[in-house]
Each structure stands twice: as C-alpha cells, then as structure tokens.
Design a protein around this nucleic acid. Structure first.
Lengths: 223, 223
DNA sequence: CACCATGTTGAACGCTCGTTCAACGCGCTA
DNA sequence: TAGCGCGTTGAACGAGCGTTCAACATGGTG
C-alpha cells in the first residue's frame, strides 16, 4: 500500500524559502545602519516571526541585518541566546506596559480590567512580531533561559488573575470561574498578535475598545 | 561592545534534544505494531507536537515509529506531505465534530453556542497534539497544501461567526460586536490545546462546561 | 520451483546547519 | 610613525538535514 498521501507538495524546496513572501534575501536594514546588536535583534525578530526559530538560520538573520553570520556571534553567545534575549525583552515590555496601565487606572475593578486588557492588546499589536515569537517559540527555548521566560509569562497571567478575582470578590464581576475567565481573556487577547494587520479595516484603538468590552462581558460585569 | 547578551545558554546542544523530556530516542510504538502509514503519522504527531515541524527531523519521526527514514518515504511523498496530511485530518475531525454537535443541538441560540464550544474544546483536549500542530505549524506549510488547511480553518471559524451572529439577530446575545466576540471565543477555546494536561485538577467535562459558560457570557447572553 | 509485486533495508547523496577562527582593517595613543 | 586593541571578514569545520536508491527479504500466484 504505497503513497497513502493525497495532498501534493513541492518535494525539494525548503519550507522556509516557500513560506517567506517576496524575494528572500532582502536586506531589512537601511545601508547607513551599522550592524549592532540591536540591528541583529530586529532582524531576528523579523525573520523568526515569519519562519519560526528552527525555520530560521543564522545566515537568514545575518542576511536580513546586512551582515555575515560571524558578526552575530560577536554580539550574542549563540542563536539560542538571541532567542532568549528577544523573548525576555518582549515580555519586559508587556509587563511594564501592564503595570503602568494598572497604576494609572482608578480603584474601580472594571477600569482595572479595561486597563490591563488595553495594555495587553496594544502591546500585542505594536510589538506584534516579538509577541508572536514569545508566544509560539517557548518550546524552542532551552533549559536555563526557558524558566526565566515562563516565569515572566506566568507573572503577566497573574495580573489578570488578580484583577478578575478582586472583581468577583467585590461583586463587580459575576462569573463563577474567575481563573478560567482570566485565562480565557488573556488567551484571546494574546491571539491578537496572530491575526492583526496594521493597515486593516479596524483601527487599533477600536480593536482595543472591543476587546475591553468583550472581556468585561466574559467576566459577567454588571455595570 | 562585545556580548551584550546577559542570559546564559548551552552552546553546542541542539534545541530539540534539550526540549524533549526524558531519553530522546524512545520508540513510541509497541513492538508488535508494523510500521504502517498510520503508525508513522501517530509518531509524527507525537514528536512534532513537542518540537515543532522544523525542530523535528525525519529521523526523529522514524525512530519514534520504530523504523528507518526510508520507510517514511514509502508511505508519504515527503516530510511536508506528512504535515499536510496530519493537519488535514486533524481539521476534518474538528469540523465533523462541530457539525455533529450543531445537528444535535436544538434551535435555541444559546444551545447552539454551547454545542460548538463543547465540540471545539473537547476535540482540542482529546486530539490535543494534532490540534497543537494544526494551530502552530501553519506557517511551516507550503503553497498548495497551505491553502487547503487555511480554508478548512476558516470554515471552522465561520461556524462560530454564524451562531453568534444569529444569536445577536434573534436577541439572545447582546454583544455589539458579534464577529469580534466570535473570534475571541474560538481563540480562547483553541488555546485549551496549549495548556490542558490529561490528568490535571479539573475533569475534561468540567473544562468544557466552564468554557461554555464563559463563551455565553462573552456574547452577553441574556437567559 | 520460478516469478513478480510489495515492502524493507542500510548506506549514501548533496546540501545546509550552527559555530569557530586566523587573518585583516582601522582608529586610537604614545 | 609604530604599536595596540577592537570589530570585522571569508572561509572553513564537523554534524545533521531531507531524500534517494540499489539490493534484499517475503509471500502469494503460474
């Protein structure tokens, strides 16, 4: 019984080449930029968001940054170290934005939820590629760095858990499952990074507002 | 300015080896099983769910199935063909379960939403690994197969869009953003595959029930 | 028994991978 | 100008990649 497969596929071409839109070896950096660590990081974000960690080679990153692979190893210990730094900084941005939003919000529980949903969704649109990598490449992280990243991701989840639980305790939210609703909301808001397109039909502010509204509904907010 | 990196990393070891738990080259098949196409597919699901498409080699799949790489090429056109078939079958299971649930549900809009949320969440727990791959490896799919998979995924989304929209039209759901709420719900329910652990604290039925409840809240269902 | 189709095997192909390194350019101080 | 140190370079390393293939086992049919 040979060839149970039905779907066709291009046999020899590699997935990375096929998945990347346009001419692949495009340099993503303006000619004046010197290839610093930051430029390499930005290039890595770009190509890894498109093809994934294992689907991106060190040469891909270097080409996108307009340099050679050897330069990457002058600034980073390894490809893995680059991924750790990338995820780490991305999560720092997310956590700081969430903390700032909570600080600015008033004592009202609904306002607090609106604040952290707004921050979370906005970061996932503005730092879309970093967020995408941080969410989908955790399994590509190795032992020491992985724990750091997972801990920070859990810390971000705890912001939501706390706000929802407080709201339930005060009576502002009527959901009988605070933790499940909290995860429900973070999962949906994190998913924005997977579908958002900057020039789309709906403005970023409107997307934020809609997610705030739906999140409040999801916790059964009684206004 | 050398070594801006702070986090440490294992320099030489490959990510796949480090990420996989336990002794890596374990054979996942009982010795009596002959290496058929189905066995290879199951082995591919197992290892790809753990390490991703690009993080899994043909030799990994063959080893997990207790065979050699050459056997894989007798049953499938390529590694990419295996992925396409895997995603395709996974989505067929999901769509058929959703259709069946809709058929069994009564005319009530809330019952319909409960039905499709239940089917979606249940499939993402029972076929967790297939779902995980189908959701996270779409970017690893190449041109012809990719379109098929994306079309089926969109079809599944449309079940939710239709049910939520109908509920809003009939007045059962009060959300002002049916399509956003619909995507909010599917995203959260799809995410179950990423965190569910079969022997966890909460039973599968209870997880389903909670997601049904939160989904109804998210569309502002008025009982 | 001879024969063919089906399924399996181990070894090998050419290529790309992550990573290293000696050599080099170049701006600085003495 | 001589010497130093830092950043950069192109080429190369060994290993692993997806894939192929000729040779081999096997079991039903003439």
């Amino acid at each position: 019984m040979p060839r149970t497969e039905t779907a066709t596929s291009a046999p020899t071409r590699r997935a990375r080449d096929a998945a990347r839109p346009g001419p692949p070896p495009t340099v993503l950096v303006r000619p004046g930029d010197e290839p610093t660590a930051a430029t390499l990081l930005a290039a890595a974000v770009e190509v890894m968001a498109a093809s994934g960690y294992h689907g991106t080679s060190v040469r891909d990153i270097a080409t996108a940054a307009g340099t050679s692979p050897a330069v990457l190893y002058h600034h980073y210990r390894s490809k893995q170290g680059l991924l750790v730094m990338l995820c780490d900084r991305g999560l720092d941005v997310l956590i700081e934005a969430t903390e700032a939003a909570l600080d600015e919000a008033g004592p009202d529980d609904a306002d607090k939820l609106r604040a952290i949903v707004g921050a979370h969704v906005r970061v996932h649109m503005e730092s879309q590629r970093e967020s995408l990598i941080g969410n989908s490449e955790i399994r590509a992280l190795e032992a020491p760095g992985r724990d750091l990243i997972v801990a920070k991701r859990d810390a971000q989840q705890r912001f939501f858990d706390r706000v929802v639980r407080d709201g339930v305790r005060s009576g502002a939210f009527a959901t009988p499952q605070p933790d499940d609703a909290s995860r429900f909301i973070t999962t949906a808001c994190t998913g924005v990074a997977a579908w958002y397109r900057p020039g789309g039909a709906t403005e970023a502010d409107e997307i934020v507002a809609r997610h705030q509204r739906i999140a409040l509904d999801a916790v059964a907010h009684r206004p």
